[in-house]
Design a protein around this nucleic acid. Sequence first.
DNA 1: TGCCTATTTGGCAAAACTGCCAAATACTGT
DNA 2: ACAGTATTTGGCAGTTTTGCCAAATAGGCA
Lengths: 106, 106
Amino acid sequence: MSNKIDAKYQEMAKISKALAHPTRMFIIDKLNEKEHCVRELTEMIGADISTVSKHLSILKNAGIISAEKRSNMVYYNLQCNCVLNIFSCVLNVIQTNIDSTINIIE
Amino acid sequence: MSNKIDAKYQEMAKISKALAHPTRMFIIDKLNEKEHCVRELTEMIGADISTVSKHLSILKNAGIISAEKRSNMVYYNLQCNCVLNIFSCVLNVIQTNIDSTINIIE
DNA sequence: TGCCTATTTGGCAAAACTGCCAAATACTGT
DNA sequence: ACAGTATTTGGCAGTTTTGCCAAATAGGCA
């Protein structure tokens, strides 16, 4: 693997890594419906607010979500709809796995 | 997060986690062109063969690739093309990030 | 059987990730 | 400036991931 090629896969892994947590998947799903502030997400998730804040910062750092400060609250949004494609692609893989398991059983 | 909902995001995170490593992204890219045995991939990657074998087992465990033993070699293939969708979606996110960075600079 | 090649598994140390608490920061309204 | 709310950051302990080595397993062939 040359350095340039390696950088490409590094960048791709960074995106995947940002998605690689149930809470962060949940956040993306919620932000797909509408923007939310940290406190709202925290209530839905049921973890410490600092934990949720850190999850949000990981997603933001990967360029998956964006933050907008209004009043003393920070509202998060999906940065682009590309993420939703990944979301449905992942679900697609899961469905395919289920299908092939069923095929084995039958 | 109810338990059932949580299970959904858990499963999605599991897929993402399997992809969340540069070497594993590289492997998927290579297997997209054609099947490869462990030794071939190891030569391209330049890590210990046991390391590559473990990466392969992670991908296989997630249902992303499949293994077929022929003679004393194990040939790996993409399990389904759904993964390629994720692959291009991830690249899409990266491109979008680049675009918005350019917009900020200009 | 014995040797060789290919791959997997076990084990361990280093690195990265998680989640909580406490403290710091930022903004609002009095 | 002060109190109150919202969010982020620092730090730390517990867990998971990673990558190497060594050993085990599996198949091919003499």
